[in-house]
Design a protein around this nucleic acid. Structure first.
Length: 577
RNA sequence: CGGGACGUAGCUCAGCUUGGUAGAGCGCUAGCUUUGGGAGCUAGAUGUCGCAGGUUCAAAUCCUGUCGUCCCGACCA
């Protein structure tokens, strides 16, 4: 393609509404444009990259034996109401009706945020026998979510392209096999995309299910926190991560429970300071949450943050921190002086339970609030003084703690989630009637798995991971073009002839080439060329004029090489490192 | 939805405090010069100052409302 006939609106300056590198570069290089918040147009170059990512996904999904289908974006609301997660999903779905007149549907439509319900109902209606299993379907298409806060360009958009795969098996073992196959397929896909990524144990969230892993691309601009150890023996999302706590500053012997005055002390840190000098690890932190309309106390060691996702896993569906006023009404003290000691259903009828983190089990000599403003208790024994109704892992894993399965220190890094695999079980198939008869003639719900890749998000993650100070750097498999041919001596007849000739030759040979034939100064072409990130820049300029040589700059290394025209094809085929 | 910032030319932004003829750089058009890392000079075109009210002789500027955008948080692939 000739640049002078293409649509490549590059920007010299950083667009005002782009914060992170990849978003800025995609806009500046003319790959995408924003239509509205979280809604983007793919321009020709961006679309070429998108199509290449999709092609890799299709090839690998097909290789795994999955079959592609195309499902409707418009879906009946009733289908969702019949499914297992309407309450959670309705908050992110767009409802659709004619904009200009009164609705003429008998039912409402929604724009699909994902397609588990659709595929499950398809299978329910068309697969009846265990002989028709296992089957794995996939789709690559636009999905819609009314994100409460779109951000970072394609990373969190209202309209985005996803690959979703869905497996149906007769039994659990089969589902595990399907899951493992997809897990491998995902590695092949992301490897081919040239991404460095980490596979982490993950929470299943509203999807539900029993096994789940995320494919995370380490990157400062990411929205997920990933916990891992260098050796690779453990990696989990921050929501899921488990850790061994550090030992306490001074694990006290059983002592006498004693109340002492702490005027003005409101925080764990206040109590650490003189004159009190109580290490945070020797304190019990008391948090109060509304869980499904009941108040619960959550106790953790002073140096351990609460992981709200783990609280949700205890079986609560709605969770919200109690306000100071609500707490005062229930406990008789304000935040800063709260504690679990002496709290029982009889003494505090508004408190439905005291849930304590496992790290506190059997601890003695702790310090905690006295449920009386300005007073704390020391010598607290968890066993003796606090009526814990339930023990659980409530802790947010922290960098510097030890992994659960080794003595290696955990690290935490930001990452972009590009893929997620779930073993769903029978949650959807039961609810939507995707049953088959097994070999004994007994009806059983299919055991399902689902497997997502954020395609548009992956595109930006690749841009983010590959970028350098001059622009984007695309891997050869995904670059919008393989070669950028730059004519630099725009007034030199011989150079023009050589460039035109090379352009035809490369095209005839099936090389994807973008020919920068603009009447621009060399500097402009260099800057634009580096910005786009095409792997090879073949320059016809000074060295051609002087010695009939092409100059090939390899974008990744930044190195320029003088190449004889006759050896160009060979050079491009096997470039120096 | 809570907190913060912003909305002026295609893009990046100044002007607003202290009301008085709408600005710069880049880009665009034409010409001359220049020609290997976003050229120089000359001449041009380009604006409902987000929108709606209000205050005022007079509003980009002050006030109120509203819409939009971005950032932090809650939500999530």
């Amino acid at each position: 393609m000739r640049w002078t006939e293409a649509f490549i609106p590059t920007l010299r300056e950083v667009p005002q509404d782009a914060e992170i590198r990849s978003h800025q570069l995609l806009l500046r290089a003319g790959f995408i444009r924003k239509l509205s918040s979280g809604i983007y147009t793919f321009l020709p170059l961006g679309l070429r990259v998108l199509r290449k990512i999709e092609r890799i996904i299709r090839e690998e999904m097909d290789r795994s034996g999955a079959m592609e289908v195309l499902m409707p974006a418009l879906q009946p609301k009733e289908l969702w109401e019949a499914g297992p997660r309407w309450d959670a999903a309705k908050n992110v779905m767009f409802a659709v009706n004619p904009a200009g007149s009164t609705p003429h549907h008998h039912f409402e439509l929604v724009l699909g945020p994902t397609h588990e319900e659709v595929i499950t109902s398809l299978v329910a209606g068309n697969i009846n026998s265990y002989r028709q299993l296992p089957r794995t379907f996939y789709q690559i298409q636009t999905k819609f979510r009314d994100e409460i806060r779109p951000r970072f360009g394609l990373l969190r958009a209202k309209e985005f392209i996803m690959k979703d795969g869905y497996s149906f098996d007769l039994d659990d073992a089969g589902a595990d096999e399907s899951y493992d196959k997809m897990h491998q397929t995902y590695q092949r896909i992301f490897d081919r995309c040239g991404l460095k990524y980490r596979i982490v144990e993950a929470d299943t969230g509203v999807m539900g299910g029993s096994r789940s892993q995320e494919f995370q691309v380490p990157c400062e601009a990411g929205e997920s926190d990933v916990v891992y150890i260098e050796s690779g023996g453990y990696a989990a999302s921050i929501e899921k991560a488990v850790s061994k706590p550090k030992s306490r500053a001074k694990s006290g012997p059983p002592g006498k429970l004693e109340k002492f005055a702490t005027p003005g002390v409101k925080t764990i840190e206040d109590l650490e300071k003189t004159p009190y000098g109580v290490a945070s690890s020797d304190q019990v932190k008391t948090l109060v949450y509304w869980c499904d309309s009941k108040l619960y106390l959550f106790l953790l060691r002073g140096d351990h943050p609460l992981n709200e996702v783990k609280v949700g896993q205890l079986g609560f569906s709605e969770l919200r921190a109690a306000s100071d006023a609500e707490i005062a009404a229930a406990l008789g003290a304000h935040v800063g002086s709260l504690g679990g000691a002496g709290v029982t259903p009889r003494s505090h009828p508004k408190i439905a339970g005291v849930i304590a983190d496992e790290a506190l089990k059997d601890q003695e000599g702790m310090t905690t609030g006295a449920n009386e403003d300005g007073f704390h208790l020391r010598g607290v024994s968890l066993k003796r003084d606090i009526a814990v109704t339930r023990w659980a892992d409530l802790r947010l894993a922290q960098a510097g703690e030890k992994a659960p399965n080794s003595d290696e220190e955990l690290k935490v890094e930001r990452a972009i989630e590009v893929g997620h695999v779930f073993k769903l079980g029978t949650k959807y198939s039961q609810k939507l009637g995707a049953n088959v008869l097994d070999e004994n003639g007994k009806s059983r719900p299919c055991v399902m798995g689902c497997y997502g890749i954020g395609v548009t998000r992956t595109l930006q993650a690749i841009a983010e991971q590959g970028a350098d100070k001059d622009g984007m750097v695309w891997p050869e498999a995904l670059a919008p073009f393989a070669v950028l041919l730059q004519l630099l001596e725009t007034k030199d007849e011989e150079a023009i002839r050589a460039a035109e000739g090379l352009y035809s030759e490369l095209r005839d040979a099936g090389v994807e080439v973008l020919y920068d034939d603009r009447d621009e100064r060399a500097g402009v072409k260099f800057k634009d060329g580096d910005l786009l990130g095409i792997p090879f820049q073949v320059r016809i300029g000074k060295s051609f004029k002087e010695g009939k040589l092409f100059e090939v700059k390899i974008r990744k290394t930044g190195k320029a090489h003088q190449v004889k025209p006759s050896e160009l094809r060979k050079f491009l085929h096997s470039p120096p490192p």
